[in-house]
Amino acid sequence: MARIGLAALSLWTVAASAAAPACDKPVYLTLDTGTMSVAPLVAEVLDRQKVNVTFFAAAERTVEGGDSLDNHWRAWWKARAAAGDEFASHTYDHVYWRGDEKSVAPRFRVQPSAGALAGRQFTWTAAEYCANIEQASQRIVDLTGKKPLPLFRAPGGKTSPKLLAEARKCGYEHVGWSPAGFLGDELPSDKYPNDKLLAQALQNIRAGDILLAHLGIRSRQDPWAPAVLEPLIVGLKREGFCFRTLREHPKYKEWIAAHDQPAAAATPTPARQP
């Protein structure tokens, strides 16, 4: 039954995507997990504005003391899946690449910033790095019943050509962000107030840009979301932009079609239209 349900979901997703109104100014809003401090407010904005996004998820420490992929957030993640959002891995332990090792077999210096090993440096094989990408993907399946996209985002966007090549071998294509798509929610509030970040984004974002923000940044005193998020969405819509998930991004569509495999049953829910 699960296999049948997923096949139906896959067919429905393709049909829904094909039925989406034409748009010549798409942008792709992506949200990394962070502290989850503004996650409920972000969800309210997305629902109100009828916008779908792509979440990159890691098990990061939250303001409640747990992590962003623990059972406390199960209902939240499940609701995002039901709303039509997409998901991808941010590595389970939010693992920073620190360098390539000089070795015959690919090995990488890494440093998790979440989980029991946070702050320590390790040398991992390609298989170990891939396993951490996969762990986050599988946890998303466990929480939502929806298979994540075969994509990942390295924390901080830090990678090497060798790392990216090994990730592709295990089925994951890397996604960064556009220069204008860095929305600035990680920057200090005193130097980069919300009104400045909003004006900058509205001025510089162009069609095709991948946008990046988070579900909570511990160090920012004046939270970026939802203060900037909704005015940004409204402003971009006013300028003729539409919001799409990475499933529809021309750079990744073929990769997703070739590597996307069903994993667990989920209930089809119509995707939003802008």
Rank of each mutant, 00 (worst) to 15 (best):
S103Y: 04
W77Y: 10
V141L: 09
A2S: 14
L198T: 03
L211C: 09
A79L: 14
A201R: 02
Q261K: 09
P223K: 09
K146V: 13
D85Q: 10
Q111G: 02
W73G: 01
T13Y: 13
I205M: 07
V27D: 01
P193S: 13
W12N: 11
L117Y: 04
L164H: 08
R153A: 11
A19Y: 03
R206C: 05
M1L: 11
S68Q: 02
G240H: 04
L212V: 12
R247M: 01
V234G: 10
F243I: 06
A118S: 14
T267P: 07
Q49G: 03
R218V: 15
S137H: 06
A126K: 09
P250R: 02
L149M: 03
A180M: 01
A8C: 12
L164N: 09
A83E: 15
A266D: 09
N52P: 00
E186M: 12
A15L: 15
P106N: 04
W12T: 07
P26N: 03
L202E: 02
T62K: 06
E248Q: 08
R220P: 00
G157M: 04
L29A: 00
G5M: 11
P21I: 02
G115D: 04
V175A: 04
R3L: 14
K169R: 15
L232C: 13
F241I: 07
V141Q: 02
F55N: 01
P193M: 11
A127K: 15
A207H: 01
P268T: 07
W76M: 01
P150N: 02
W73E: 00
F182D: 05
D190Y: 10
W255T: 06
I210C: 00
P262E: 03
V63H: 03
W255N: 10
T159R: 05
P179M: 03
L229D: 00
Y172I: 03
F122K: 03
L229T: 06
D222R: 08
E128K: 15
T267Y: 14
P106K: 14
E44H: 05
K251T: 00
W224D: 03
H174V: 09
V51A: 05
Q111A: 13
A19M: 08
R48Q: 14
T144V: 07
R139H: 09
D195F: 07
L198S: 06
G157C: 05
R272P: 02
D85L: 05
A39H: 11
I210V: 14
L151D: 10
R206G: 07
Q135A: 13
G66T: 06
F122N: 08
P193G: 13
R109N: 08
R80K: 15
Q221H: 07
L149Y: 07
L46Q: 08
K237H: 10
P223Q: 06
L11T: 14
H90M: 13
R120S: 12
Q121R: 14
A265S: 11
S68D: 05
K158L: 12
A83V: 05
P226K: 05
W12K: 08
G208W: 04
A271G: 09
Y172Q: 00
A227C: 01
E166G: 02
A264I: 01
C242E: 05
R80N: 13
L117M: 10
S17W: 06
P226S: 02
D32A: 12
